[in-house]
Structures are given as C-alpha cells and as structure tokens.
C-alpha cells in the first residue's frame, strides 16, 4: 500500500452563494500520477488553487505528508515541496529561460549571506542545468521567456516548477494548446519523472489522450462534486462520466 502524500478532506468552496466545490475529498498516493478531470466549470481549477493555497476553502482540510496545510500561505508551498504550474502561463516574461528556472530554485538559494549573494550558487546550478536539459530548453537558455513559442513556454512553466525540487507537482492543463508531438514528449517526461525520480503528480487536464495514457488514477468532478474515481479504464466506462461529458442519451446508448 502506497503512502497517501496528499489528502484533500471534505473541502467546500463557496463564492458568495455559488458552491464551486462541494464536500470534495481526494487522496493522491506517493509516486503516482493522479488526474483531475471534468467538464468546464466543474471546479477543477478551484480545487487546484485550494491545494496550492491560492484560494482558501470555506471548510475542509488539506493535508500534505501528514502536515495540515489548510491555512499555510501560498509562499510556503515551495518549501513544503509543492510546485505548481499555471493554466494561463505566468512566466517571468522579460527574463531569460535560465533566470526563470533559477527563480524556481529560490528556496534552495538561501542560507548564509555569502550564499545568498552568489549569482550562480554551484550547489543549485547543477540541478538547474539538469532541469533545463531534461525539458529540452537547453538551446534557449539565454532567450527571454516572452520570445519562446507557446510549446516551449509551457515547458518552461514545467521546468521552473521542477527547479523547486518538488515532491508533489501540481499541473494545471499542461497540455492545453500543445501539438501532438509536444503532448507525446510531455507524456514521456512526466512518466519518467514519476517512475525514475519518484515524483507525485496531480494534473488537471482536458486532453484525454494524455490523461488516459499517463494517469494511475483519475477523479472526475462535475458541478463541484466528485462523480467518479478509478483507473483510466474504469472511469472511461462509467455511465455517470459519459453522461457528464456527452449528455444523458450517450450514457444510455
């Protein structure tokens, strides 16, 4: 039995009168890829933002590695080893690829004053170079983030998150807008990160091709409520899921 690295317990989020997420629970096992899917407006991103501490749940608990992080500030997440990417790209646009990734390693550049003053802390640089090579951004090291094409910008989001050296990686639609070839290499990279580096990934994604291929478990949300959970196979054949995505008739067909 694998350890549950992340536990979301009965989380409810209300925006005024609107219930965006309703009594939602989720367990993510260490060393697995867990996908959170659902139609538009199902509450996926809201849940995602609660876990990364950008939103505050109205009630419920979020536990990471046996520590309650329900009230921890967002800026502490990197120190816990939780990294996130952003759905609508939040790169440091005017900075180079290298600098973007270096800021990802911010929490590892601390220590004594001389350490903090270092332009390229040797202890951190090796990991940074490794991340840049692994994400295929090597040739663009000195390019400004805003000058990269969309696919590489998405990769840079991922690279920057990896520089945190996370234990839990939260990815918000990493494949949205990517070409098939790019999705395939993202698939390989994520699988490799989990299998060889023991990373745990929670991914919100609409691209079913990727979700079905990489996920160990899939949770389906609709109207803020969990409607199904299981392996990709189980979820794919669940009538409630088919109904949520395609309508009632499709479910009975």
């Amino acid at each position: 039995m694998r350890k549950e690295l992340l536990k979301v317990e009965n989380v409810t989020v209300r925006f005024g009168g609107l219930v965006a997420v309703n009594d939602f629970s989720l367990n993510v096992a260490q060393g697995t890829i867990h996908a959170l899917i659902g139609p538009n407006g199902a509450g996926k991103s809201t849940t995602f933002n609660c876990i990364s501490r950008f939103y505050q749940p109205t009630s419920g608990r979020i536990v990471f590695d046996d520590t309650d992080i329900t009230h921890a500030p967002a800026s502490e997440m990197a120190r816990y080893g939780i990294a996130r990417s952003f759905q609508n790209l939040e790169l440091f646009n005017e900075l180079t690829v290298l600098e973007n990734v270096m800021i990802g390693a911010h929490v590892h550049c601390g220590g004594s004053l001389p350490d903090r003053l270092q332009a390229k802390p040797p202890a951190v640089m090796r990991h940074i170079e490794e991340v840049i090579e692994r994400t295929g951004l090597g040739p663009y090291r000195e390019h400004k983030a805003r000058n990269l094409d969309f696919g590489h910008q998405k990769l840079l989001e991922l690279a920057r998150a990896l520089a945190i050296r996370p234990r839990l990686l939260l990815l918000d639609e990493p494949a949205a807008g990517l070409r098939n070839r790019e999705i395939a290499s993202l698939d390989r990279l994520l699988t490799d990160l989990v299998r060889t580096d023991g990373l745990t990934v929670l991914i919100v994604e609409h691209v079913m091709q990727l979700v079905m291929s990489i996920s160990d478990r899939v949770t389906v949300l609709n109207f803020g409520t969990k409607i199904a959970e299981g392996t990709p196979q189980e979820v794919r054949n669940d009538p409630a899921v088919i109904e949520a995505y395609l309508g009632k008739e499709a479910a009975h067909a």
Binding site: A74, A78, E90, F92, A119
Partner: peptide, 21 residues
C-alpha cells in the same frame, strides 16, 4: 543575488513569484 532575482520575479509576476516561494 538571490534578492535581485526575487525583485525581478515580483516585477514580472507576483503570483508566479509566490508559487516559487
């Protein structure tokens, strides 16, 4: 320095800077 990088991170995107700790 680390502080200088943090300055530019805050200038470019506060939410991303937060997520980087």
């Amino acid at each position: 320095s680390r502080l200088g990088r943090a300055f530019r991170a805050v200038r470019e995107s506060e939410v991303a800077a937060l997520a980087m700790g």
